[in-house]
Simulated scan of single mutants.
Amino acid sequence: MRVAVISDVHANRVALDAVLADMPDVDGMVCAGDVVGYNPWPAECVAELRRREVPTVMGNHDRAVAAGSSFRFNSMAAAGVEYARERLDEEAMEWLSELPTERTEFGGRVKLVHGHPADPDRYTYPDEFAPELLEDEDVLVLGHTHVQGHRTFDGGIVMNPGSVGQPRDGDHRAAYAILDLDEMTVEERRVDYDVDAVVDAVEEAGLPERIGTRLYDGQ
């Protein structure tokens, strides 16, 4: 069984479309949170994941939009939250608000969280991946850091597919991964997309310019 794993779309429809176009045939797809925030297509990205019925957990930006709070967010993140709240309809807001902070899929073999199993807001970078993070699942999927990576242990795999919509590992390309549950392997993938189009859309939406321009550097 092959599973597409995505995370941190952050309302970047251009990057999401590129990932979906690049994606090989898979048996399922999961998302480790933060569908919305920052970029100017929150409604379109929520609609796409809902249409595909992608099992998704709640990220911190998803929670902020659903709850109407951007506490401790910087100005760029807060602007993205406000923008999303103004553009999501009632059904989309309800979908966000009902996302769980943790879920298991594929017969309990894959666990999804956003930041850390014990704290959804805790950044857990690939160099911190350890077998102790695993419980009964074969694969633990994390997001939040926007840094792609995975480690394989005797007890299973800990992985972060990277960010679709706002990579922060120095590579501007959209990130995702293909998990093979039969072979217990992870293929990390990167996809070029039209960053210029996102920069232009950010400006047109009146969002902070840096939301777009930092995409050039993958930061």
Rank of each mutant, 00 (worst) to 15 (best):
A11R: 07
A11F: 11
N12L: 07
N12D: 12
R13P: 01
V14N: 02
V14K: 12
L16E: 14
L16I: 09
D17C: 06
V19D: 13
V19H: 12
V19M: 09
L20W: 14
P24E: 14
D25I: 07
V26R: 11
V26W: 12
V26Q: 10
D27R: 05
D27S: 15
G28E: 06
M29N: 03
M29D: 03
V30A: 07
C31W: 01
C31D: 15
A32H: 12
D34V: 04
D34F: 03
V35A: 05
V36A: 08
G37I: 05
G37R: 03
G37D: 07
Y38D: 06
Y38N: 05
P40E: 10
P40H: 09
W41H: 14
P42I: 06
P42F: 08
P42Y: 07
A43P: 11
E44W: 10
C45V: 10
C45K: 08
C45Y: 10
V46P: 09
V46M: 10
V46Y: 09
A47C: 03
L49D: 13
R50E: 15
R50Q: 15
R51C: 06
R51F: 09
R52Y: 06
E53V: 07
V54N: 12
V54T: 15
V54E: 12
P55Y: 09
T56H: 03
M58F: 00
D62F: 03
D62C: 12
R63K: 15
A64Q: 06
A64S: 15
V65R: 10
A67G: 02
G68C: 07
G68K: 03
S70R: 01
F71Q: 13
F71E: 15
R72T: 10
N74V: 10
N74F: 04
M76W: 00
A77H: 09
A78C: 08
A79V: 08
G80Y: 04
V81W: 01
Y83K: 07
Y83V: 07
E86K: 13
R87T: 06
R87Q: 07
R87L: 12
D89I: 04
D89R: 02
E91P: 00
M93Y: 01
S97M: 02
S97F: 02
S97L: 02
L99R: 09
L99H: 09
P100H: 08
T101L: 15
E102T: 15
T104F: 00
E105N: 00
E105G: 01
F106M: 09
F106W: 14
G107Q: 10
G108K: 06
G108Y: 04
G108R: 07
R109K: 14
R109V: 00
R109T: 11
V110G: 12
K111G: 02
K111P: 06
V113K: 01
H116S: 04
P117F: 04
P120Q: 05
P120D: 14
D121F: 04
D121L: 05
Y123K: 01
T124N: 01
Y125R: 10
Y125I: 00
P126E: 01
D127M: 00
E128W: 11
F129R: 01
F129C: 00
A130E: 14
L134V: 03
E135K: 13
E137D: 12
E137T: 07
D138Y: 00
V139N: 11
V139S: 09
V141A: 05
